[in-house]
Design a protein around this nucleic acid. Structure first.
Lengths: 244, 244
DNA sequence: AACCTTAATTGACATTTATCAATTAATTTT
DNA sequence: AAAATTAATTGATAAATGTCAATTAAGGTT
Protein backbone atom coordinates (compact mmCIF):
# COMPACT_ATOMS: atom_id res chain seq x y z
CA UNK A 1 0.00 0.00 0.00
CA UNK A 2 1.99 3.04 1.17
CA UNK A 3 5.56 2.75 -0.12
CA UNK A 4 8.30 1.30 2.01
CA UNK A 5 10.66 3.97 3.26
CA UNK A 6 14.19 4.03 1.92
CA UNK A 7 16.48 1.46 3.49
CA UNK A 8 17.44 2.68 6.92
CA UNK A 9 19.95 0.08 8.03
CA UNK A 10 23.39 1.54 7.95
CA UNK A 11 25.00 -1.88 7.62
CA UNK A 12 28.13 -0.90 9.41
CA UNK A 13 27.13 -0.02 12.94
CA UNK A 14 27.43 -3.02 15.18
CA UNK A 15 23.78 -3.20 16.11
CA UNK A 16 22.54 -3.17 12.56
CA UNK A 17 24.88 -5.90 11.55
CA UNK A 18 24.28 -8.32 14.35
CA UNK A 19 20.73 -7.90 15.51
CA UNK A 20 18.07 -10.22 14.32
CA UNK A 21 15.18 -8.77 12.36
CA UNK A 22 17.53 -5.94 11.68
CA UNK A 23 19.86 -6.74 8.86
CA UNK A 24 17.21 -8.13 6.57
CA UNK A 25 14.50 -5.72 7.67
CA UNK A 26 11.75 -8.22 7.52
CA UNK A 27 10.27 -11.10 9.43
CA UNK A 28 9.04 -14.00 7.38
CA UNK A 29 6.92 -12.71 4.56
CA UNK A 30 6.31 -9.41 6.23
CA UNK A 31 8.51 -6.41 5.52
CA UNK A 32 7.45 -5.12 8.83
CA UNK A 33 10.71 -3.62 10.04
CA UNK A 34 11.35 -2.12 6.64
CA UNK A 35 8.75 0.50 7.46
CA UNK A 36 10.80 1.99 10.28
CA UNK A 37 13.32 4.77 10.00
CA UNK A 38 16.78 4.14 11.32
CA UNK A 39 15.93 6.14 14.43
CA UNK A 40 12.71 4.24 15.06
CA UNK A 41 14.49 0.96 14.57
CA UNK A 42 17.20 1.86 17.04
CA UNK A 43 14.65 3.18 19.53
CA UNK A 44 12.79 -0.12 19.29
CA UNK A 45 15.76 -2.45 19.34
CA UNK A 46 18.17 -0.50 21.47
CA UNK A 47 18.13 -2.56 24.62
CA UNK A 48 17.01 -5.85 23.26
CA UNK A 49 18.84 -9.00 24.11
CA UNK A 50 19.72 -11.80 21.82
CA UNK A 51 19.35 -15.16 23.44
CA UNK A 52 20.16 -18.74 22.65
CA UNK A 53 17.85 -21.62 23.49
CA UNK A 54 18.57 -25.33 23.46
CA UNK A 55 16.19 -27.82 21.84
CA UNK A 56 13.20 -28.35 24.07
CA UNK A 57 13.64 -25.17 26.08
CA UNK A 58 10.66 -22.92 26.68
CA UNK A 59 11.04 -19.50 25.08
CA UNK A 60 7.71 -17.99 26.07
CA UNK A 61 5.40 -19.57 28.60
CA UNK A 62 1.63 -19.57 28.35
CA UNK A 63 -0.16 -17.45 30.98
CA UNK A 64 2.86 -15.31 31.82
CA UNK A 65 2.67 -11.53 31.25
CA UNK A 66 3.17 -10.47 27.69
CA UNK A 67 6.08 -8.09 28.10
CA UNK A 68 8.08 -8.93 25.01
CA UNK A 69 7.64 -10.21 21.51
CA UNK A 70 10.05 -12.80 20.32
CA UNK A 71 11.78 -12.61 17.02
CA UNK A 72 13.32 -15.87 15.83
CA UNK A 73 16.61 -15.23 14.08
CA UNK A 74 17.61 -18.78 13.54
CA UNK A 75 16.11 -22.16 14.28
CA UNK A 76 12.73 -23.80 14.59
CA UNK A 77 10.21 -23.32 17.36
CA UNK A 78 6.76 -24.63 18.11
CA UNK A 79 3.71 -22.70 19.24
CA UNK A 80 1.88 -24.83 21.76
CA UNK A 81 -1.46 -24.50 23.45
CA UNK A 82 -1.09 -26.16 26.84
CA UNK A 83 -4.17 -27.65 28.35
CA UNK A 84 -4.58 -27.86 32.15
CA UNK A 85 -4.93 -31.63 31.81
CA UNK A 86 -1.72 -32.00 29.83
CA UNK A 87 -3.11 -32.30 26.32
CA UNK A 88 -0.83 -30.20 24.18
CA UNK A 89 -1.70 -28.89 20.76
CA UNK A 90 1.00 -27.59 18.45
CA UNK A 91 -0.64 -24.80 16.49
CA UNK A 92 2.23 -23.73 14.35
CA UNK A 93 5.91 -24.22 13.68
CA UNK A 94 7.86 -21.00 13.39
CA UNK A 95 10.99 -20.62 11.34
CA UNK A 96 13.87 -18.22 11.08
CA UNK A 97 12.96 -14.57 10.66
CA UNK A 98 9.57 -14.85 12.30
CA UNK A 99 8.08 -12.54 14.84
CA UNK A 100 5.74 -13.96 17.41
CA UNK A 101 3.84 -12.69 20.39
CA UNK A 102 2.68 -15.91 22.01
CA UNK A 103 -0.86 -14.69 21.51
CA UNK A 104 -2.40 -11.76 23.33
CA UNK A 105 -3.31 -8.30 22.22
CA UNK A 106 0.20 -6.84 22.20
CA UNK A 107 -0.28 -4.63 25.22
CA UNK A 108 -1.64 -5.18 28.69
CA UNK A 109 -2.19 -8.84 28.27
CA UNK A 110 -0.76 -12.26 28.93
CA UNK A 111 0.53 -14.89 26.59
CA UNK A 112 -2.04 -17.33 25.34
CA UNK A 113 0.47 -19.84 24.04
CA UNK A 114 3.80 -21.35 24.89
CA UNK A 115 6.65 -21.11 22.42
CA UNK A 116 9.38 -23.72 22.76
CA UNK A 117 12.56 -24.40 20.82
CA UNK A 118 12.65 -27.46 18.58
CA UNK A 119 16.21 -26.99 17.31
CA UNK A 120 18.81 -24.63 18.69
CA UNK A 121 17.21 -21.20 18.47
CA UNK A 122 18.72 -17.74 18.36
CA UNK A 123 16.15 -15.10 19.03
CA UNK A 124 15.69 -11.68 20.46
CA UNK A 125 13.07 -10.14 22.67
CA UNK A 126 11.40 -6.87 21.82
CA UNK A 127 9.88 -4.88 24.63
CA UNK A 128 6.15 -4.30 24.11
CA UNK A 129 6.33 -0.86 25.72
CA UNK A 130 8.82 0.25 23.12
CA UNK A 131 6.79 -1.47 20.47
CA UNK A 132 3.77 0.47 21.60
CA UNK A 133 5.66 3.75 21.26
CA UNK A 134 6.78 2.82 17.79
CA UNK A 135 3.23 1.88 16.79
CA UNK A 136 2.00 5.25 18.04
CA UNK A 137 4.52 7.12 15.93
CA UNK A 138 4.40 5.10 12.75
CA UNK A 139 0.98 4.10 11.53
CA UNK A 140 2.29 2.25 8.48
CA UNK A 141 4.17 0.02 10.89
CA UNK A 142 1.03 -0.40 12.99
CA UNK A 143 -0.94 -1.44 9.92
CA UNK A 144 1.73 -3.89 8.92
CA UNK A 145 1.76 -5.40 12.38
CA UNK A 146 -2.02 -5.64 12.24
CA UNK A 147 -1.81 -7.57 8.99
CA UNK A 148 0.98 -9.77 10.26
CA UNK A 149 -0.85 -10.54 13.45
CA UNK A 150 -4.11 -11.26 11.65
CA UNK A 151 -2.35 -13.57 9.23
CA UNK A 152 -0.70 -15.45 12.03
CA UNK A 153 -3.97 -15.85 13.88
CA UNK A 154 -5.79 -16.93 10.74
CA UNK A 155 -3.22 -19.62 10.09
CA UNK A 156 -3.70 -20.99 13.56
CA UNK A 157 -7.47 -20.80 13.18
CA UNK A 158 -7.24 -22.67 9.94
CA UNK A 159 -5.13 -25.37 11.57
CA UNK A 160 -7.65 -25.81 14.35
CA UNK A 161 -10.61 -25.82 12.01
CA UNK A 162 -8.95 -28.59 10.04
CA UNK A 163 -8.39 -30.54 13.21
CA UNK A 164 -12.02 -30.35 14.12
CA UNK A 165 -13.37 -31.07 10.63
CA UNK A 166 -11.23 -34.01 9.60
CA UNK A 167 -10.70 -37.58 10.65
CA UNK A 168 -7.28 -38.86 11.54
CA UNK A 169 -5.96 -39.77 8.08
CA UNK A 170 -6.77 -36.27 6.79
CA UNK A 171 -5.08 -34.67 9.75
CA UNK A 172 -1.95 -36.79 9.44
CA UNK A 173 -1.79 -36.02 5.72
CA UNK A 174 -2.05 -32.31 6.55
CA UNK A 175 0.79 -32.54 9.02
CA UNK A 176 3.06 -34.38 6.61
CA UNK A 177 2.32 -31.99 3.75
CA UNK A 178 2.73 -28.95 5.97
CA UNK A 179 6.15 -30.12 7.12
CA UNK A 180 7.32 -30.84 3.61
CA UNK A 181 5.95 -27.74 1.90
CA UNK A 182 6.13 -25.10 4.58
CA UNK A 183 8.83 -26.06 7.01
CA UNK A 184 11.54 -28.31 5.64
CA UNK A 185 10.94 -27.69 1.95
CA UNK A 186 12.72 -30.81 0.80
CA UNK A 187 11.63 -34.36 0.10
CA UNK A 188 12.56 -36.60 1.82
CA UNK A 189 12.89 -34.50 4.92
CA UNK A 190 14.54 -35.19 8.23
CA UNK A 191 12.11 -34.40 10.96
CA UNK A 192 13.57 -33.39 14.28
CA UNK A 193 10.16 -33.81 15.81
CA UNK A 194 9.23 -36.70 18.05
CA UNK A 195 6.21 -38.82 17.27
CA UNK A 196 4.55 -37.23 20.26
CA UNK A 197 5.08 -33.80 18.72
CA UNK A 198 3.78 -34.92 15.35
CA UNK A 199 0.73 -36.27 17.15
CA UNK A 200 0.32 -32.96 18.99
CA UNK A 201 0.35 -31.22 15.62
CA UNK A 202 -2.34 -33.57 14.39
CA UNK A 203 -4.59 -33.48 17.43
CA UNK A 204 -4.37 -37.14 18.36
CA UNK A 205 -2.42 -39.55 20.57
CA UNK A 206 1.01 -40.72 19.48
CA UNK A 207 -0.29 -44.28 19.12
CA UNK A 208 -2.95 -43.14 16.70
CA UNK A 209 -0.44 -41.09 14.76
CA UNK A 210 1.91 -44.05 14.44
CA UNK A 211 -0.87 -46.33 13.22
CA UNK A 212 -2.00 -43.80 10.67
CA UNK A 213 1.54 -43.31 9.45
CA UNK A 214 1.92 -47.04 9.11
CA UNK A 215 -1.16 -47.28 6.94
CA UNK A 216 0.26 -44.63 4.64
CA UNK A 217 3.49 -46.59 4.51
CA UNK A 218 1.64 -49.83 3.71
CA UNK A 219 -0.30 -48.12 0.94
CA UNK A 220 2.93 -46.84 -0.57
CA UNK A 221 2.09 -43.16 -0.06
CA UNK A 222 5.12 -42.42 2.04
CA UNK A 223 8.30 -44.00 3.18
CA UNK A 224 9.60 -43.34 6.63
CA UNK A 225 12.55 -44.54 8.58
CA UNK A 226 13.76 -43.44 11.97
CA UNK A 227 13.74 -39.72 11.45
CA UNK A 228 13.15 -39.24 7.78
CA UNK A 229 9.91 -39.04 5.89
CA UNK A 230 9.62 -39.22 2.14
CA UNK A 231 6.36 -38.36 0.47
CA UNK A 232 5.96 -40.70 -2.49
CA UNK A 233 2.47 -39.88 -3.72
CA UNK A 234 1.74 -36.30 -2.80
CA UNK A 235 -1.39 -36.06 -4.93
CA UNK A 236 -2.96 -38.98 -3.09
CA UNK A 237 -2.08 -37.43 0.25
CA UNK A 238 -3.72 -34.21 -0.89
CA UNK A 239 -6.77 -36.24 -1.83
CA UNK A 240 -6.87 -37.80 1.64
CA UNK A 241 -6.50 -34.38 3.18
CA UNK A 242 -9.42 -33.06 1.14
CA UNK A 243 -11.68 -35.95 1.95
CA UNK A 244 -11.04 -35.39 5.63
CA UNK B 1 -2.96 4.30 27.07
CA UNK B 2 -3.12 7.52 25.10
CA UNK B 3 -6.20 9.45 26.22
CA UNK B 4 -9.42 9.23 24.29
CA UNK B 5 -10.06 12.41 22.34
CA UNK B 6 -12.91 14.61 23.43
CA UNK B 7 -16.33 13.44 22.26
CA UNK B 8 -16.64 14.20 18.60
CA UNK B 9 -20.19 13.20 17.85
CA UNK B 10 -22.26 16.28 17.37
CA UNK B 11 -25.44 14.45 18.27
CA UNK B 12 -27.63 16.55 16.07
CA UNK B 13 -26.50 15.96 12.53
CA UNK B 14 -28.51 13.21 10.94
CA UNK B 15 -25.59 10.90 10.36
CA UNK B 16 -24.36 11.01 13.89
CA UNK B 17 -27.74 10.26 15.28
CA UNK B 18 -28.71 7.38 13.08
CA UNK B 19 -25.56 5.60 12.14
CA UNK B 20 -24.50 2.53 13.99
CA UNK B 21 -21.17 2.58 15.80
CA UNK B 22 -21.56 6.29 15.71
CA UNK B 23 -23.79 7.47 18.47
CA UNK B 24 -22.18 5.38 21.17
CA UNK B 25 -18.67 5.65 19.78
CA UNK B 26 -17.71 2.14 20.63
CA UNK B 27 -18.16 -1.38 19.46
CA UNK B 28 -18.59 -3.97 22.16
CA UNK B 29 -15.92 -3.50 24.77
CA UNK B 30 -13.71 -1.50 22.50
CA UNK B 31 -13.87 2.29 22.41
CA UNK B 32 -12.50 2.05 18.99
CA UNK B 33 -14.49 4.79 17.27
CA UNK B 34 -14.01 7.08 20.25
CA UNK B 35 -10.45 7.62 19.07
CA UNK B 36 -11.52 9.35 15.88
CA UNK B 37 -12.10 13.05 15.41
CA UNK B 38 -15.41 14.15 14.04
CA UNK B 39 -13.79 14.66 10.65
CA UNK B 40 -12.18 11.24 10.62
CA UNK B 41 -15.43 9.66 11.67
CA UNK B 42 -17.35 11.34 8.89
CA UNK B 43 -14.66 10.51 6.36
CA UNK B 44 -14.88 6.88 7.38
CA UNK B 45 -18.64 6.58 7.62
CA UNK B 46 -19.72 9.03 4.98
CA UNK B 47 -20.99 6.70 2.31
CA UNK B 48 -21.77 3.70 4.39
CA UNK B 49 -25.08 1.96 4.10
CA UNK B 50 -27.20 0.66 6.85
CA UNK B 51 -28.84 -2.60 6.01
CA UNK B 52 -31.40 -4.90 7.48
CA UNK B 53 -31.10 -8.67 7.41
CA UNK B 54 -33.73 -11.28 8.19
CA UNK B 55 -33.02 -14.27 10.41
CA UNK B 56 -30.94 -16.80 8.53
CA UNK B 57 -29.70 -14.40 5.90
CA UNK B 58 -26.02 -14.32 5.05
CA UNK B 59 -24.37 -11.01 5.86
CA UNK B 60 -20.82 -11.81 4.81
CA UNK B 61 -19.92 -14.88 2.81
CA UNK B 62 -16.76 -16.88 3.30
CA UNK B 63 -14.26 -16.72 0.40
CA UNK B 64 -15.65 -13.50 -1.06
CA UNK B 65 -13.39 -10.43 -1.29
CA UNK B 66 -13.01 -8.55 1.94
CA UNK B 67 -14.15 -5.11 0.85
CA UNK B 68 -16.10 -4.05 3.92
CA UNK B 69 -16.22 -4.59 7.61
CA UNK B 70 -19.58 -5.14 9.17
CA UNK B 71 -20.73 -3.35 12.24
CA UNK B 72 -23.73 -4.89 13.98
CA UNK B 73 -26.01 -2.21 15.35
CA UNK B 74 -28.76 -4.43 16.55
CA UNK B 75 -29.41 -8.15 16.62
CA UNK B 76 -27.50 -11.38 16.89
CA UNK B 77 -25.30 -12.94 14.25
CA UNK B 78 -23.17 -16.05 14.01
CA UNK B 79 -19.64 -16.39 12.71
CA UNK B 80 -19.42 -19.65 10.81
CA UNK B 81 -16.57 -21.56 9.32
CA UNK B 82 -17.98 -23.41 6.33
CA UNK B 83 -16.33 -26.62 5.37
CA UNK B 84 -16.34 -27.80 1.75
CA UNK B 85 -18.11 -30.97 2.86
CA UNK B 86 -20.84 -29.09 4.67
CA UNK B 87 -19.64 -29.37 8.25
CA UNK B 88 -20.25 -25.97 9.74
CA UNK B 89 -18.60 -24.68 12.86
CA UNK B 90 -19.99 -21.68 14.67
CA UNK B 91 -16.99 -19.90 16.12
CA UNK B 92 -18.67 -17.00 17.79
CA UNK B 93 -21.97 -15.25 18.32
CA UNK B 94 -21.82 -11.52 17.81
CA UNK B 95 -24.12 -9.09 19.52
CA UNK B 96 -25.19 -5.51 19.07
CA UNK B 97 -22.40 -2.97 18.78
CA UNK B 98 -19.82 -5.37 17.46
CA UNK B 99 -17.46 -4.86 14.61
CA UNK B 100 -16.45 -7.83 12.55
CA UNK B 101 -14.32 -8.44 9.50
CA UNK B 102 -15.22 -12.01 8.64
CA UNK B 103 -11.54 -12.85 9.13
CA UNK B 104 -8.82 -11.73 6.81
CA UNK B 105 -6.07 -9.18 7.20
CA UNK B 106 -8.21 -6.08 6.69
CA UNK B 107 -6.81 -5.19 3.30
CA UNK B 108 -6.19 -7.14 0.12
CA UNK B 109 -7.69 -10.30 1.35
CA UNK B 110 -10.78 -12.42 1.34
CA UNK B 111 -13.15 -13.34 4.12
CA UNK B 112 -12.27 -16.45 6.01
CA UNK B 113 -15.67 -16.84 7.64
CA UNK B 114 -19.33 -16.43 6.90
CA UNK B 115 -21.42 -14.15 9.07
CA UNK B 116 -25.16 -14.85 9.12
CA UNK B 117 -28.06 -13.26 10.95
CA UNK B 118 -29.67 -15.22 13.77
CA UNK B 119 -32.32 -12.65 14.67
CA UNK B 120 -33.26 -9.59 12.66
CA UNK B 121 -30.04 -7.64 12.26
CA UNK B 122 -29.39 -3.99 11.55
CA UNK B 123 -25.87 -3.40 10.51
CA UNK B 124 -23.70 -1.17 8.44
CA UNK B 125 -20.80 -1.81 6.13
CA UNK B 126 -17.57 0.10 6.40
CA UNK B 127 -15.38 0.31 3.34
CA UNK B 128 -11.91 -1.16 3.95
CA UNK B 129 -10.29 1.41 1.66
CA UNK B 130 -11.59 4.21 3.83
CA UNK B 131 -10.68 2.24 6.90
CA UNK B 132 -7.17 1.93 5.58
CA UNK B 133 -6.94 5.69 5.12
CA UNK B 134 -8.17 6.27 8.62
CA UNK B 135 -5.67 3.80 10.02
CA UNK B 136 -2.88 5.58 8.19
CA UNK B 137 -3.82 8.92 9.69
CA UNK B 138 -4.63 7.88 13.22
CA UNK B 139 -2.24 5.45 14.83
CA UNK B 140 -4.15 5.31 18.11
CA UNK B 141 -7.09 4.03 16.09
CA UNK B 142 -4.83 1.53 14.34
CA UNK B 143 -3.54 0.26 17.68
CA UNK B 144 -7.06 -0.07 19.00
CA UNK B 145 -8.13 -2.01 15.93
CA UNK B 146 -5.09 -4.24 16.34
CA UNK B 147 -6.12 -4.99 19.90
CA UNK B 148 -9.72 -5.55 18.95
CA UNK B 149 -8.81 -7.82 16.11
CA UNK B 150 -6.37 -9.81 18.23
CA UNK B 151 -8.95 -10.21 20.96
CA UNK B 152 -11.54 -11.42 18.52
CA UNK B 153 -9.15 -13.93 17.01
CA UNK B 154 -8.03 -15.12 20.41
CA UNK B 155 -11.60 -15.77 21.45
CA UNK B 156 -12.17 -17.87 18.38
CA UNK B 157 -8.89 -19.70 18.94
CA UNK B 158 -9.90 -20.40 22.49
CA UNK B 159 -13.25 -21.77 21.33
CA UNK B 160 -11.57 -24.10 18.88
CA UNK B 161 -8.95 -25.24 21.35
CA UNK B 162 -11.73 -26.14 23.75
CA UNK B 163 -13.46 -28.09 21.03
CA UNK B 164 -10.40 -30.14 20.33
CA UNK B 165 -9.43 -30.71 23.98
CA UNK B 166 -12.76 -31.69 25.47
CA UNK B 167 -15.23 -34.52 25.17
CA UNK B 168 -18.85 -33.88 24.33
CA UNK B 169 -20.22 -33.17 27.81
CA UNK B 170 -17.57 -30.52 28.40
CA UNK B 171 -18.28 -28.92 25.05
CA UNK B 172 -22.03 -28.86 25.59
CA UNK B 173 -21.51 -27.37 29.05
CA UNK B 174 -19.33 -24.67 27.49
CA UNK B 175 -21.96 -23.83 24.92
CA UNK B 176 -24.73 -23.57 27.51
CA UNK B 177 -22.64 -21.43 29.85
CA UNK B 178 -21.46 -19.21 27.02
CA UNK B 179 -25.01 -18.53 25.91
CA UNK B 180 -26.17 -17.76 29.42
CA UNK B 181 -23.24 -15.62 30.54
CA UNK B 182 -22.12 -13.94 27.36
CA UNK B 183 -25.03 -13.76 25.01
CA UNK B 184 -28.45 -13.82 26.62
CA UNK B 185 -27.38 -12.87 30.14
CA UNK B 186 -30.50 -14.20 31.80
CA UNK B 187 -31.49 -17.53 33.29
CA UNK B 188 -33.60 -19.19 32.02
CA UNK B 189 -32.90 -17.95 28.53
CA UNK B 190 -34.86 -18.31 25.33
CA UNK B 191 -32.56 -19.56 22.66
CA UNK B 192 -33.42 -18.66 19.13
CA UNK B 193 -30.90 -21.16 17.93
CA UNK B 194 -31.83 -24.47 16.41
CA UNK B 195 -30.42 -27.67 17.83
CA UNK B 196 -28.34 -27.91 14.68
CA UNK B 197 -26.82 -24.53 15.44
CA UNK B 198 -26.14 -25.45 19.04
CA UNK B 199 -24.45 -28.58 17.78
CA UNK B 200 -22.41 -26.51 15.31
CA UNK B 201 -21.28 -24.37 18.23
CA UNK B 202 -20.23 -27.49 20.11
CA UNK B 203 -18.48 -29.29 17.29
CA UNK B 204 -20.74 -32.33 17.11
CA UNK B 205 -23.80 -33.68 15.33
CA UNK B 206 -27.24 -32.52 16.38
CA UNK B 207 -28.09 -36.04 17.56
CA UNK B 208 -25.10 -36.09 19.87
CA UNK B 209 -25.96 -32.65 21.18
CA UNK B 210 -29.51 -33.66 21.95
CA UNK B 211 -28.39 -36.79 23.77
CA UNK B 212 -25.89 -34.84 25.82
CA UNK B 213 -28.52 -32.25 26.69
CA UNK B 214 -30.86 -35.00 27.76
CA UNK B 215 -28.27 -36.43 30.13
CA UNK B 216 -27.89 -33.02 31.73
CA UNK B 217 -31.64 -32.83 32.05
CA UNK B 218 -31.83 -36.29 33.61
CA UNK B 219 -29.10 -35.38 36.09
CA UNK B 220 -31.00 -32.27 37.07
CA UNK B 221 -28.32 -29.84 35.90
CA UNK B 222 -30.57 -28.03 33.49
CA UNK B 223 -34.16 -27.81 32.50
CA UNK B 224 -35.08 -27.28 28.91
CA UNK B 225 -38.32 -27.04 27.05
CA UNK B 226 -38.93 -26.22 23.44
CA UNK B 227 -36.86 -23.10 23.18
CA UNK B 228 -35.89 -22.25 26.70
CA UNK B 229 -32.95 -23.47 28.71
CA UNK B 230 -32.57 -22.98 32.43
CA UNK B 231 -29.31 -23.73 34.11
CA UNK B 232 -30.08 -25.23 37.49
CA UNK B 233 -26.64 -26.21 38.76
CA UNK B 234 -24.13 -23.90 37.18
CA UNK B 235 -21.27 -24.95 39.42
CA UNK B 236 -21.65 -28.55 38.33
CA UNK B 237 -21.73 -27.52 34.70
CA UNK B 238 -18.53 -25.56 35.26
CA UNK B 239 -17.03 -28.67 36.80
CA UNK B 240 -18.01 -30.72 33.74
CA UNK B 241 -16.53 -28.05 31.50
CA UNK B 242 -13.24 -28.16 33.41
CA UNK B 243 -12.97 -31.91 33.39
CA UNK B 244 -13.40 -31.93 29.63
C1' DA C 1 -58.89 -28.39 10.91
C1' DA C 2 -56.32 -31.16 7.56
C1' DC C 3 -52.18 -31.03 5.15
C1' DC C 4 -47.50 -30.19 4.43
C1' DT C 5 -42.95 -29.22 5.63
C1' DT C 6 -39.27 -28.82 8.65
C1' DA C 7 -37.11 -29.58 13.11
C1' DA C 8 -36.45 -32.55 17.06
C1' DT C 9 -35.98 -36.92 19.07
C1' DT C 10 -34.97 -41.74 19.67
C1' DG C 11 -32.86 -46.23 18.77
C1' DA C 12 -29.71 -49.49 16.72
C1' DC C 13 -25.50 -49.82 14.94
C1' DA C 14 -20.89 -48.82 12.79
C1' DT C 15 -16.89 -46.23 12.95
C1' DT C 16 -13.42 -43.62 14.96
C1' DT C 17 -10.34 -42.83 18.43
C1' DA C 18 -8.32 -43.28 23.06
C1' DT C 19 -6.51 -46.07 26.75
C1' DC C 20 -3.73 -49.39 28.82
C1' DA C 21 -0.31 -52.78 28.95
C1' DA C 22 3.40 -55.14 26.91
C1' DT C 23 7.29 -55.17 23.89
C1' DT C 24 10.93 -53.56 21.15
C1' DA C 25 14.13 -50.17 19.59
C1' DA C 26 16.98 -46.24 20.28
C1' DT C 27 19.71 -43.21 23.11
C1' DT C 28 22.19 -41.88 27.07
C1' DT C 29 24.76 -42.86 31.14
C1' DT C 30 27.83 -45.38 33.77
C1' DA D 1 30.08 -52.46 26.19
C1' DA D 2 26.54 -53.05 29.79
C1' DA D 3 22.97 -50.86 32.17
C1' DA D 4 19.50 -47.60 32.39
C1' DT D 5 16.45 -44.50 30.55
C1' DT D 6 13.49 -42.74 27.09
C1' DA D 7 10.98 -43.11 22.71
C1' DA D 8 8.57 -45.97 19.38
C1' DT D 9 5.65 -49.65 18.28
C1' DT D 10 2.08 -53.15 18.59
C1' DG D 11 -2.08 -55.45 20.23
C1' DA D 12 -6.28 -55.87 22.73
C1' DT D 13 -9.95 -53.48 24.40
C1' DA D 14 -13.09 -49.80 25.85
C1' DA D 15 -14.97 -45.43 25.20
C1' DA D 16 -16.56 -41.73 22.38
C1' DT D 17 -18.88 -40.20 18.55
C1' DG D 18 -21.09 -40.40 14.05
C1' DT D 19 -24.45 -42.44 10.77
C1' DC D 20 -28.70 -43.93 9.24
C1' DA D 21 -33.43 -44.82 9.57
C1' DA D 22 -37.68 -44.32 11.85
C1' DT D 23 -40.71 -41.65 14.60
C1' DT D 24 -42.69 -37.80 16.78
C1' DA D 25 -43.51 -32.99 17.41
C1' DA D 26 -43.96 -28.27 15.84
C1' DG D 27 -45.01 -24.58 12.75
C1' DG D 28 -46.94 -22.82 8.55
C1' DT D 29 -50.32 -22.99 4.72
C1' DT D 30 -54.28 -23.70 2.39
Amino acid sequence: MSGIKEPAVCGNCAECKYDCCFSNRHCGDSHIFGLLTHEELHALMDNKRQIHFRPGETILKQNTPLTHLVCIKDGLAKVVSEDPKGKNLILQIIKSNSIFTGGGSIVDDFRHFTVAAITDVDCCFIDTGRLYNTLTKNSAFAIELLKHSNNQHLKMLSTLINLSNKYMPGRVADTLLYLKNNIFETNPYDFILSKQELADMSGMTKESFIRSLKEFEDSGLIHHSRNTIEILKESELIEISKNG
